[in-house]
Every structure is written in structure tokens, then in C-alpha cells.
């Protein structure tokens, strides 16, 4: 599988947002969370506001309000979501569990919403099917 042609871009993340926000797994994983998340993908950044199981705001670039936690890695590392050898399940989970995609900011809060983050990444991966 390859990364979608428009990854990373605002358009890509708008599609991911729609799918993620409708996903019960995301809702369950972020049900008690009120915070913001920054994804830094090389030189590209996307900021999201997660509030009680929904993604209520999203824009390109950092936000003046900062973020609760950021997930940060070079573009090539993020491409691993699609390009790591396929195994059953979530081959990309190790990128997060072992810190290859680094967490910055409130790491404890990041851990508490890991289920929601994994749901988001799952929808990013799904965008790449057929790419």
C-alpha cells in the first residue's frame, strides 16, 4: 500500500476527520477528553480540537492556543502507516508505542486517548487503500 497522493494536506485530513468523527471507536476512546492535538508531518502540520468524542475543529498549521499533545515525525516515518510490511492488525502501532512518531506535550493525556488516536490513524490508513 502507498500513501495517498494528497498526504499530507488539509483536504486529506478533512476526509479523515469525517470518517473518524463518525467512528464509535474514536468516540469511545476520546469520550472524556477536552483538548487539542497537533500532527507534525515533516514540515506540514494539522491541528485538531477533540472534544468529548468528536473532532470539532481542524485547520492546517499550529494554533495560537497550542496543543495538549503533538505527534511528531519526519514525513518518511509517517509514510510507514502505509508502507510498513503488511501484517494482520495495525503494523503501524509500533511507530507510536516505540516513540518513532514522538509524543510531545502531555504524554499522559496522549496515553489516555491512545484508542482514539489509533482510530484516527486507522482511517488515515484506510484512505490509502487503492492508492
Amino acid at each position: 500500500m502507498k500513501a495517498p497522493a494528497d498526504f499530507p494536506s488539509r483536504e486529506f485530513f478533512e476526509r479523515v476527520r469525517a470518517a473518524t468523527a463518525a467512528d464509535p471507536a474514536f468516540r469511545r476512546g476520546t469520550e472524556f477528553f477536552d483538548g487539542s492535538v497537533l500532527l507534525e508531518i515533516g514540515g506540514f502540520a494539522v491541528w485538531m480540537k477533540w472534544y468529548r468524542g468528536d473532532i470539532v475543529d481542524l485547520h492546517e498549521g499550529a494554533d495560537l492556543l497550542g496543543y495538549t499533545f503533538a505527534l511528531r515525525a519526519p514525513l518518511e516515518t509517517w509514510r510507514g502507516i502505509w508502507e510498513l510490511p503488511r501484517t494482520a492488525g495495525k503494523p503501524w502501532a509500533r511507530l507510536f508505542n516505540y516513540g518513532e512518531i514522538a509524543t510531545e506535550g502531555d504524554a499522559v493525556a496522549s496515553g489516555r486517548v491512545l484508542g482514539g488516536t489509533f482510530a484516527l490513524i486507522g482511517h488515515m490508513e484506510a484512505e490509502g487503500r487503492g492508492a
Binding site: 508505542n97 504524554a107 499522559v108 496515553g111 489516555r112 491512545l114
Partner: peptide
């Protein structure tokens, strides 16, 4: 349990 999710006895504690 949540991995590395912190302690119930420091609700606002941060790593």
C-alpha cells in the same frame, strides 16, 4: 488499564 496513562492519585500529573 491504559498504558502509561498515569495515576488515579495525581489526576492532573504530567510526565
Amino acid at each position: 488499564g491504559i498504558p502509561a496513562g498515569g495515576h488515579s492519585w495525581i489526576p492532573l500529573g504530567k510526565q
